[in-house]
Amino acid sequence: MSGIALSRLAQERKAWRKDHPFGFVAVPTKNPDGTMNLMNWECAIPGKKGTPWEGGLFKLRMLFKDDYPSSPPKCKFEPPLFHPNVYPSGTVCLSILEEDKDWRPAITIKQILLGIQELLNEPNIQDPAQAEAYTIYCQNRVEYEKRVRAQAKKFAPS
């Protein structure tokens, strides 16, 4: 494992614990031996107030490669969400998460999670990743928002 990646992720964890947006979660997972795995984080993004996503808490896994922060983490909703920019596998399609697009090593975990929260309610229809959600979003916004509200209710924190 890269010392650069681990040191950056340790800084990220410290900064997150000191200050993070209300309702968001970002925690490194534990290895079988109980030690912390900084390369694999369990996160959760709350649906934004005043949107059909409100009330939901959407679980996301963030996986970092050894060359982080040169390369972005892979962000994957578990379980996958109904959304035009979420692949059926759950992987998020967002330009700041793509090395050859808008990724920059200075982007923080907090910025990534806030960017994904923004994307939930403002899909990028130029870059669809899920045919069904994309089609319904474009053709029947009322039905799309109904499905999103049902999903938010399903993923409401207990």
Rank of each mutant, 00 (worst) to 15 (best):
V142L: 12
P32I: 13
P32A: 13
S89N: 06
K74A: 15
Y144T: 02
T29A: 13
K18M: 07
A15T: 13
A15N: 08
D19M: 08
A156Y: 08
E132R: 08
Q11K: 11
S95R: 01
N40P: 06
E145H: 02
L38T: 09
M39S: 05
P28Q: 04
F155V: 12
S71T: 12
T29S: 14
K30M: 09
K65W: 02
E132W: 05
F77W: 01
K74P: 10
K146A: 14
A10H: 05
V27F: 03
N85H: 01
R13H: 04
M39R: 08
Y68T: 06
D127P: 00
V142H: 12
F58G: 05
L60G: 09
R13Y: 02
F77K: 02
R149P: 05
L94M: 04
P128K: 00
S7K: 07
N121K: 10
A106G: 11
G23M: 02
R147F: 03
K76M: 13
D33V: 01
G34P: 00
I109C: 07
D66R: 07
S2L: 06
C138K: 14
W103F: 08
Q111H: 14
A106V: 11
I116R: 07
E98A: 15
P123Q: 00
G50E: 14
P84V: 15
P21L: 05
G34Q: 13
A10D: 00
L38H: 05
W53P: 04
P105N: 00
K14Y: 06
Q117A: 14
V86E: 04
V25A: 08
F155L: 10
I107E: 11
A150V: 11
R17N: 01
V86D: 02
V25Y: 08
Q139P: 07
A150D: 12
N31Q: 10
P69C: 03
D19K: 06
K30T: 07
P69R: 00
D100E: 08
N121G: 12
Q117P: 11
A131K: 10
P46S: 07
A26P: 01
V27C: 14
R141S: 09
L38N: 00
Q139I: 08
Q11H: 12
E54K: 14
D102L: 04
K48E: 08
T29W: 03
Y134A: 10
L119Q: 02
I125A: 08
P80R: 11
P88D: 15
K76G: 13
Y134H: 05
F155Y: 11
F82E: 05
G115Q: 02
E132S: 11
P69M: 01
T35R: 02
G115R: 00
S70L: 14
R17E: 03
G50T: 05
T51W: 02
S158W: 11
K154L: 12
L6R: 05
F58D: 06
P28W: 00
K101Y: 15
R8G: 01
E132Q: 09
W41T: 01
K14C: 15
E78Q: 11
N140H: 09
R104Y: 01
F155Q: 14
Y134G: 05
K18A: 05
Y137S: 02
V27G: 08
M36K: 07
L81P: 05
N31C: 12
R61Y: 09
A106L: 01
Q117W: 08
T135I: 11
D102A: 13
V92T: 07
W103M: 05
H83K: 05
Y87D: 03
S2P: 09
E132A: 10
L97Y: 05
R104Q: 04
A5K: 06
A156R: 13
A150C: 10
W103I: 03
P46N: 07
Q126P: 08
G47D: 06
L9R: 00
Q117F: 12
I116Q: 06
I125R: 06
G56F: 07
V148Y: 03
A150E: 10
I96Y: 05
V148I: 15
I116A: 15
N85Y: 01
R13W: 00
L63V: 14
V25R: 13
F22M: 01
T29P: 04
G55E: 09
S89A: 06
L38G: 02
S7A: 01
W103E: 00
R141N: 13
P79H: 15
V86S: 10
K74S: 15
M62G: 04
F155C: 14
T51Y: 04
N85P: 02
E145R: 14
L57A: 05
R147S: 08
W53D: 04
D100H: 14
Q126W: 11
Q130S: 09
P46K: 07
Y144C: 02
E118V: 10
Q151H: 05
V92I: 07
M62E: 02
A44Q: 01
E143T: 07
V142M: 13
Q111S: 15
F64I: 07
L57Q: 11
F24I: 06
L94T: 03
F22D: 06
L97V: 14
S71D: 15
A131T: 12
E54I: 08
G90A: 05
L119K: 02
A152L: 00
K153I: 15
A150Y: 13
V25S: 08
V92M: 01
P128R: 11
K101N: 15
P123I: 05
E98L: 10
R149M: 09
K101D: 14
E78V: 13
A129F: 00
G50F: 11
W53Y: 05
K65A: 04
L81C: 05
R141K: 10
I45S: 06
E99W: 08
I45Y: 06
Y144G: 04
Y134C: 07
F64C: 08
D67F: 15
A129V: 00
L120I: 07
N31F: 09
F155E: 02
D66T: 12
P21Q: 00
P69G: 02
G90T: 04
S89I: 14
R13P: 02
A156Q: 12
E99G: 14
P157A: 12
P21S: 05
F64K: 03
S2T: 11
D19L: 04
G55D: 14
F82C: 04
T91G: 15
T29Q: 07
C93L: 04
G115K: 00
V142T: 13
V25Q: 12
F64H: 03
P88T: 15
S71W: 14
G47T: 06
M39W: 09
G23E: 09
L38V: 01
L9K: 08
G47W: 08
L120Q: 08
S95G: 01
F82R: 01
L119V: 07
T35L: 02
C138D: 09
G56M: 07
K146G: 12
K30G: 09
K110G: 05
Q11M: 13
A26K: 05
K59F: 13
G115H: 00
P157C: 10
A156N: 04
G115N: 01
K49C: 07
V27I: 12
E12N: 07
W16R: 03
N85F: 09
G47P: 01
V86F: 13
F24K: 01
F24N: 05
A156D: 15
P123T: 05
K59P: 09
P79G: 14
D33R: 01
K49F: 13
D127E: 11
Y68F: 10
G56P: 09
R104A: 10
A131S: 12
P105Y: 03
L113W: 04
L9D: 15
K14D: 03
L63F: 13
